[in-house]
Design a binder for these strands. Sequence first.
DNA 1: TTGAAAGCGTTACCAA
DNA 2: TTGGTAACGCTTTCAA
Lengths: 359, 359
Amino acid sequence: MSRIAGDKTNKAGQNVGQGIRSGSTHSTRGTGAVTLDDVAKLAGVSPITVSRALNYPNKVAAKTLEKINQAIARTGYVPNLLAGGLASKRSRLIAAIVPSIANSVYAETIKYFSEELRGSGYQVLLGESGFSEEQEEALISAVLSRRPDGIFLTGVNHSIACRRLLLAAKIPVVETWDISPSPLDVAIGFSHEQIGSSVARFLWSKGYRRIGIISATDHRAQVRQRAFIETLRGLGLSEVAVSPVPMPTSFKLGRDGLARLLDNGFAQGAVFCSSDTLAQGALAEAQSRGLSIPDQLAIIGFGDQPYAAHTFPSLTSVHFDRATIGRKAAIAILARINGEHVAENVIDVGYEIIERQSC
Amino acid sequence: MSRIAGDKTNKAGQNVGQGIRSGSTHSTRGTGAVTLDDVAKLAGVSPITVSRALNYPNKVAAKTLEKINQAIARTGYVPNLLAGGLASKRSRLIAAIVPSIANSVYAETIKYFSEELRGSGYQVLLGESGFSEEQEEALISAVLSRRPDGIFLTGVNHSIACRRLLLAAKIPVVETWDISPSPLDVAIGFSHEQIGSSVARFLWSKGYRRIGIISATDHRAQVRQRAFIETLRGLGLSEVAVSPVPMPTSFKLGRDGLARLLDNGFAQGAVFCSSDTLAQGALAEAQSRGLSIPDQLAIIGFGDQPYAAHTFPSLTSVHFDRATIGRKAAIAILARINGEHVAENVIDVGYEIIERQSC
DNA sequence: TTGAAAGCGTTACCAA
DNA sequence: TTGGTAACGCTTTCAA
C-alpha cells in the first residue's frame, strides 16, 4: 500500500487541518489549507488583525488576541511564510554555506549558529559547497533565490561572480573561518598565515630542526603551509619535507602521508598535519612502525576536535573555538538586520596551541 | 566601519545587480531587485514567457530563449522562489529533521539525502530537534510554515500533535532510522528490536555468559536494550548488568559507564554499547585498567562510524549504511512528489555485525 | 485598536 | 509558441 500523509485513511481518524474551514471554496487554485482569512472569519475579525496577533501580539487587544488564538488552535492554522516573506521582504531565513556538512568542525559551528538564530525566529538554510568555487557559485545563486535575510559563508575567497551576486543581494554577509583585510561585509575567524607561522616557531622553539608537513590541498591549508615553510626558512631551516594530500582529509590519508615522508628518509623530527584527522592517521602510522611519540616523532594537528582530544590524549593541536565563531556570526547578522551600529567588521577569534604529550 | 554588502562603497565598483533595470520605479514597496518583469521588458517578451524559459525551456522557441538568457545575464536576475513557490504551491524545499546536526551519523545521512535531491532542483531545510518530542513539535510547525514539498524525519515516534501537523500538511513524509508497522507515510531504516536481539544472540553464540550494556536514554537505544535483555533472558541469562548514560553520548560517558560496571563487580564478559562513541570510551577505560581486549573484556559498539573503524581497528560494531538511508529517503520523496506508484512503504535497509578483534 | 485596499513576484488557466 | 488576466496568502500603507 502506498499513501500520502493526510490521506483520508489516517488511522487516528481525527479531524485534521482543514476540517474546520469557515469560508467556502472560491477558487480553483488553493491547496485547501487553512489560511489567515479562514482564521479571521472564525474569529470574527479582519485578516490584518490576525496577522498582527501573530507578529505583534502586543498591538492587539487582549480579548481579540484570545479569540484569534482559539481560532488558530481550532483550525490548526500554520502560517505560510512564502506569502509572508514575499509581502514583507523578510524571509526569516538565513543561508549558510559550508564546504562539508559531514565534517564535524563545520557541523558544530552551524549548530551554534542555528541555535543563536532560532531564538530570534530565524531558520537556517544549509548548503554544501564541497570546497569548489564553481559549486559555491551555483549554490549561492540557488540559495539567494530563497531571499535569505543574511548569509554565512566559509572562507574569504570567493569568485568574482559570487561577490557580485552577494553584493547585489544587499543582505548582511558573514565570512567565517578566516579573516581578510577587505571582507565583503563582516569576517569572523582567525589568520591562517599567523597559525602557520606560530606552529613553525613553536616547533622551532622546542628544538626541532627536522620538520615536515602533511597538508591538504584546500585553500586555507595551503595558506598555513606557505606561512609555515616561510617562517621556518626565516629561522634558518631551508628544507621542509612536504607531503600533500587531496581533499577531503581522512585517517588513511594521514597514515599514507606520514608513510611517504618516512619512506623518503624523514626521521627524528616533527610533523605538522593540516587536520586532526590526518594527525590521527599519522600517529597510527608512527605507532605501527614502533616509533615513540614524541621522542622519535612529534606530531601536531589542527582543529583540536573534542573526540580527537579524548581518543588521542597525546595529540598536540591548534585549537579554535567553533562555538564562538558560530555564535558571533549569528549575532553579527542579527545586528546588521536590525540596523544596529557594528563597531568592527573583522573579528579575530584567535587560536591556541594546546600542548599535549605528542610535542 | 560598518557596511552592508551592496553598499555603494563596494570596492570593485562594478555595476552590480539592479544597475540595469529597464522599467521605472513605480511603487513604494519593491526592494529594487531585478524582477521577472524587468527581464521580460529587456528581452521584449511577456513575463510568462520568461517564466517558461526558466522552468520549461523546451517549451520556448530557441531564439526567444536566447534573448531571454541574454537579458537574464545582463540584469543579473535571480528568481524569487518565495513568489514562485506561493504561486505554484511547489516550494522546491524539502525539510529534514534530525536529533543532532553535529552527530556524524545524521550529518552523513543528510549529506547523501541532499545530494540526491539537489539533482532534481530541491534544497534541504535542516532542523535539529535535540532528541525531545516537544522540540520536534515546535520545529515541525516552524518548518511547515515554509511549505516544504516533503519532509524527512528521524525515528518513527512522534507526538499526536506532530502527527496531526504532518498529516494536515499533505506532503510526503519519510521516517528514517527505524521501521514501523504503521508509518505516517514511508519508513526507511532497520529494526532496533532485531538489532538488540541479534547482538544478544551473537554474544551468546561466542560463549559469553557475563553480559552487560551501556546504553543511552534515547528511545531507539532503549528499544535495542530491551530486546537485548529479553533475548538473553530467553537464552537463559537472567542477569544483565545495565549502565545507563544520558544523551548525547560521549567518549567520557563511555569511560564512566564501563567504570561503573567494573566497579560493581562486572568482569570477564562482554559489553554492548549503544553508540560507537560510548564503545570507544569503554575501550579506553578497559585499556587504562590493563584489561586485554577481547580476552578479559569484549566490547561491541553501534554505528560502525568510518573514523571509529580506523582509529579503533579492534572495535566490533553493528553496521548500517547511512548513504543508502539518505538516498532512498530522497528517492522515495521524489517518487511521491511526482505521483509515481510506490510499491513498498516500509523499507528495511538491514544491518550487519562487523566483527573485528574486540569480540 | 482595527480595517480596506493595494501590492509583493511569480505561475495557472485559458485563449490566441 | 506566446500572452492576458487572475490568483497565491500574506503585509504594508493609510485611514478611521
